[in-house]
Structure formats: structure tokens, C-alpha cells
Design a protein around this nucleic acid. Structure first.
Length: 589
DNA sequence: CATCTCACG
DNA sequence: ACGTACGTGAGATGC
């Protein structure tokens, strides 16, 4: 296989949907790289100073038609850093780049949890070389220029260097894969997601601007009236958005109990504290209401409108494949993995996420996937049996712990058991459970002791996982993903963090692997259906499906998701997927 | 640019 | 004795 590293320079690097291809750099072996300038521009030398193409560049169309056979040649490996970005630019130009390697994902497969995987930091760490900063070409702030205005000799230095660095990193990383036994992870859980996420991001999801705009106005009105009420109660006006000013009002002027907490010595005014204070006085509760609306307005109804693409009328998030320690994706610009759902007012924001006429949004989510994985990894027969028979798992936990019958259970008992189940996944501590349930620490500790008494296998799993991490410096998912735990042997006040993260990582990471496997199979599974995969929210996939293919799509997607562990891992706990359909995301979920 | 707060799984 | 739930991204404030 011949290989080439590859780097694009673009005019608007922050938004691939709008970016113009300015140039291409290539490298065929370390130290041998070139740059192809395509769309560099300068002001004309005549009286009018119009913007014109710099002379001496290669013709755009000619270049692409010459490169296309190379980019689509299955015997030529194209290597880049963060290839999802390049793949998207090329997809917009009608080119399917394949096969590929990605140094960012190689680094992630090898060293998740150790450091970040940006090219600059990889270059400094592994090549002991600090790349030319992009800012030295573009400048910063108001005077910043776009890449098409960079002089070609400078662009050559910058872009060719990037391709060269990528080649050198690839040589290092590729040979490390088998040594660390993560070839499988890289080839089957990381690399295949590049074209899949690229397509999802380009597809985007339709968002109704008018709905958001109306909600925004309604929030603004409610906020203004709350603000007036709060200032009346406080006896003065102040900036409600400033925790510092609010803290001074509450704890100095109004003499509420509760001291400083933050490092900066500022008063802490988080929601849990305001909730406690709200039993004594009306003001803290009103602040909580105001805060909720301020959050919904600024982060969602206002900001989301800015993200609606002018050409597509849709919102195009960007997923970062190597963004987390555990194997989950993160989503940004905008983050579509934290759209409100828990509060009634927040949930309404999902009404703005809609399907095209003649289509519906279909949401499919794994039911309690992390608890199922815990039961699987730790081998807890009672839990496995419960999942196989479809028993309410939180009720079962409550029943076991508190010796109450499953039927007619007190909802508050079940709620406590649910909190304990979550706590177990997070590497439970008495303090954390006590705070979450607002019960005395001793009582929380008694709950945990009782839980481990009833499910001794969980305690064994936790101890074994911690010991494995201490010995090896990493933990693993069921599918072989490695998550490094560099702080596990560091003594001191933060040791609890590392321990809990190590316990949680195989569980969260295995769930991430499973939905990745489902996503990788999805394009083939739905290729003949009028359905598109739009979003992933950790344990949920959202599709846009033609009205006449809803049932068939649900049946196929559900099956792919439920079987996603096979054949690599034969789960002894069933994975179950629940589906919802609607014109909007609010209805579908 | 750090800190606080809060939205999600 | 210590100080804590796991994993994220974004907006507003204020130094």
C-alpha cells in the first residue's frame, strides 16, 4: 500500500459547512512534503484594489480531478490528523476519501486518559518540535486574516510542515498499536466512525427558528418579572447573573447561614444551596427560577438560533471522537448532547427540533445500558436474571436492600434504590450518596454496606478493577478499549477521584463501545430505507425517517442496536432498546 | 482566561 | 484525616 499524509488549508476553519478550500499539502515520507495553493487571494494592484486570485496557483477543478482518483484509490492510504474534518470538506466536493488513517485516533486508541490528542501537543510530546502556530500567520483578534490571505511562501512552510508532522506521528503510532494490543480498537471502534460522523454532521437536524424565538421572548418576560420581585425582596438592585453579588446579598445583607466555599473565597450559590435556603425565604427560590430561565434562554433558545445554517436551515453539530477519557463522543458548536429534558420548561426546547414534512424523528435509546453492563462485567446473577425477566431493576434493588415486596412499593424507597444504583456506577462513596439523597452520611454508608452485603460481586468487581488499575496504569472495556489511569497510584486528597474514575471507566466505556458498534453497522443496515441517522446522545440515536418507513426502520435499527455487542462479545444480559416517534424531538423521546 | 453555574447521559 | 459521586460543553462574570 502506498501512503500519503494529507492536510487541507481552509478559509473558515471553524465551520466546515462554509469553509472554502484554499490549499492542500501532501507528504510521502518524513521530510518530503509539498503544498498545492489553490485559492489564495490578494488585492488587485489597480486603482480599485479588488480581491483577485494570486497568480501562479493550480486550477481548482483540474487539481481536484487529478486528486480524486488518488483520494478514492483503495490501494493508497490517506493519513491525516482529525480526518473527519477533511472527509467533510471532500464530501461537499463529491469525493469519498478512502482508505484513511487518523493520527488523532491512533493517539486516542493508544493513550486515552494520558493527554490530549491535538497535533500541536502530539508534535511537542513525541517529536520534540513546536509547530508554526497558526496565529503567527493569521494574527489574532480583530486584525486576524483568513487563510486565503496568507502569502503562499508562508502557507507552504505552515501546511507542508503539518503534513510532515502527521507522517512522522503516524510512523510512531502505527507500530505501537499491536504492542499495546489496541489494533482492534483502532480499526473497528475508532476509524470506521470517521465517515459515519462526517455524514451525520453534514446532514444536521432541522430546527424551527420561530419556535425558539417565541420561547426566547416568553423567557425574557418571565425573567424581567422575576428580577423585579427579587430586587424588591432584596431591597436593592443587583446583577442577578453575578454569583458574587448574589452571595453578598444572601450571606451579608440578608444574613443567611452558610459560609464561603470556593477557592477564590467567594460565596457558593449553587442550586443545592439555594434549594436549602428556599425553605426559609422566598428569594432563593425565585433566583432558582430566574437562573433556570436565564440558562434556557442564553444557552438554548438564543444561541441555537445562531447555529441554524443559512443554506440548510439545519443545525450541524461537531462530534469529537477523541474528546473523552472513556470512549464517549463529545458534541460542540453547538453541543446537541445536552439539550434540556429534565424540566418541563426545558423540554419544550426539543419541540424546535423537527423533521422535514413527510418525515418523522425517531429516537431509539438503550434502556439502563450501564447497569446491564455492570451486571455483565461483574457477573451478578441476580441482576442478570432480573434483566432477563424484565423486572424493574431499581425496585428489585430496593426489595433486596430493604426487605420489602416488589409489588406496591413505596416510590420513595425505589427512588433511593435508584440513587444507589447510579452511585454504584460512579464508584459510590458514603459522602456522595448522602449529598445526593440528602440523608446523614452514616445512613448513606449503611445503605452502601447493605448493598455490598446483598451484591457481594459488585464489591469484588470494584476492588479488582482498582487493583488492576494500580498494577497496570489502565483499565479496559469489554471490547479492549484502554483507558489510562495515570493518577491511580498518586497518594493524597485526590486519590478518591482516580479510584472512582477507574471503576466507572470500564462501564461507561463499554456502553460507548456498544453504541459505536451499532453506529458503524447502521449505514449498511438502513441503506435501502428512506432514513438518515442524525444524532447520537451517548445511549440514544436519533433518525429522520420517511412517514412510510417508520415501522420497518425501527425494527431494523432496534435489532442492530440490541445485537451490537455480537459477535465479539456474547452478552449474557439482554440489551433492550426503546423507540419513540414524533414530528419533533420532544414527541419522539 | 479562570471561575462559577448548569444543561445532558 | 482527608474531601468526594462518573463523563462532558457553554454562557456570564470579573480579574
Amino acid at each position: 500500500m502506498r501512503l500519503v499524509t494529507w492536510q487541507l488549508t481552509l478559509k473558515l476553519p471553524l465551520n466546515e459547512m462554509m469553509a472554502d478550500l484554499v490549499g492542500i499539502s501532501l507528504c510521502i515520507k518524513p521530510g518530503h512534503a509539498c503544498y498545492i495553493p489553490l485559492s489564495h487571494r490578494e488585492n488587485n494592484n489597480d486603482l480599485f484594489g479588488a480581491e483577485v486570485l494570486v497568480s501562479g496557483q493550480l486550477d481548482f477543478e483540474t487539481t481536484l480531478s487529478l486528486l480524486r482518483p488518488v483520494l478514492e484509490d483503495e490501494s493508497i492510504l490517506k493519513i491525516g490528523q482529525n480526518m473527519k474534518y477533511d472527509a467533510k470538506i471532500l464530501l461537499l466536493l463529491g469525493i469519498n476519501i478512502s482508505p484513511i488513517d487518523d493520527t488523532m485516533l491512533l493517539s486516542y486508541s493508544l493513550n486515552a486518559g494520558l493527554h490530549n490528542h491535538s497535533m500541536d501537543s502530539l508534535s511537542e510530546r513525541y517529536l520534540n518540535y513546536k509547530p508554526v502556530p497558526i496565529k503567527s500567520l493569521l494574527g489574532s483578534g480583530k486584525a486576524a486574516i483568513t487563510f486565503d490571505r496568507v502569502k503562499i511562501p508562508e502557507a507552504v512552510q505552515y501546511a507542508a510542515e503539518d503534513a510532515d508532522i502527521t507522517m512522522r506521528l503516524w510512523c510512531l503510532f502505527k507500530s505501537e498499536l499491536h504492542k499495546k494490543r489496541v489494533t482492534n480498537v483502532y480499526e473497528n471502534l475508532e476509524r470506521p466512525l470517521v465517515p459515519i460522523l462526517a455524514n451525520m454532521e453534514l446532514t444536521g437536524i432541522k430546527v424551527d427558528r420561530d419556535i425558539l424565538s417565541r420561547m426566547s421572548n416568553s423567557f425574557a418576560q418571565k425573567m424581567a418579572s422575576l428580577e423585579y420581585e427579587i430586587h424588591e425582596l432584596a431591597g436593592e438592585t443587583f446583577n442577578l447573573g453575578s454569583p458574587k453579588q448574589l452571595g453578598e446579598i444572601l450571606f451579608e445583607k440578608m444574613k443567611f447561614a452558610g459560609g464561603t466555599k470556593g477557592k477564590a473565597g467567594a460565596y457558593s450559590t449553587g442550586a443545592d444551596i439555594l434549594e436549602d435556603l428556599s425553605t426559609e425565604h422566598a428569594l432563593p427560590g425565585l433566583v432558582l427560577d430566574w437562573r433556570q430561565l436565564a440558562k434556557l434562554k442564553s444557552t438554548y433558545t438564543d444561541a441555537l438560533q445562531e447555529h441554524i445554517n443559512k443554506n440548510t436551515g439545519r443545525v450541524h453539530t461537531s462530534y469529537l471522537i477523541s474528546g473523552t477519557n472513556t470512549g464517549r463522543f463529545s458534541s460542540s458548536d453547538p453541543n446537541l448532547q445536552n439539550i434540556p429534558i429534565r424540566s418541563d420548561e426545558g423540554r419544550k426546547i426539543r419541540e424546535a427540533f423537527i423533521a422535514e414534512p413527510g418525515f418523522k424523528l425517531v429516537s431509539l435509546d438503550y434502556s439502563q445500558i450501564e447497569l446491564r453492563i455492570l451486571a455483565e462485567i461483574a457477573g451478578i446473577d441476580e441482576l442478570k436474571k432480573a434483566f432477563r425477566s424484565g423486572v424493574d431493576i431499581h425496585a428489585l434493588t430496593a426489595s433486596e436492600m430493604f426487605d420489602v415486596p416488589l409489588e406496591g412499593m413505596d416510590p420513595s424507597i425505589r427512588r433511593q434504590a435508584k440513587a444507589i444504583n447510579f452511585g454504584v456506577i460512579y464508584g459510590i462513596s458514603g459522602f456522595g450518596l448522602a449529598r445526593n439523597l440528602r440523608i446523614p452520611r452514616a445512613k448513606a454508608q449503611a445503605f452502601i454496606d447493605r448493598y455490598f452485603e446483598r451484591f457481594p460481586g459488585i464489591k469484588v468487581y470494584m476492588d479488582q478493577t482498582k487493583e488492576f488499575a494500580k498494577e497496570h496504569g489502565y483499565v479496559q472495556t469489554l471490547f479492549g478499549r484502554r483507558i489510562n489511569t495515570p493518577n491511580i497510584n498518586v497518594k493524597g486528597p485526590h486519590s478518591g477521584f482516580a479510584r472512582r474514575a477507574a471503576i466507572n471507566a470500564p462501564i461507561q466505556g463499554t456502553a460507548a463501545d456498544i453504541i459505536r458498534r451499532a453506529m458503524i453497522r447502521m449505514p449498511y443496515a438502513i441503506k435501502d430505507l428512506p432514513a438518515k441517522m442524525l444524532l447520537q446522545v451517548h445511549d440514544e440515536l436519533i433518525f429522520e425517517v420517511s412517514d412510510d418507513a417508520i415501522d420497518k426502520t425501527i425494527s431494523i435499527v432496534k435489532s442492530v442496536m440490541e445485537k451490537a455487542g455480537e459477535p465479539a462479545v456474547k452478552m449474557t444480559v439482554p440489551l433492550t432498546v426503546e423507540a419513540g416517534v414524533g414530528q419533533s424531538w420532544a414527541e419522539a423521546h
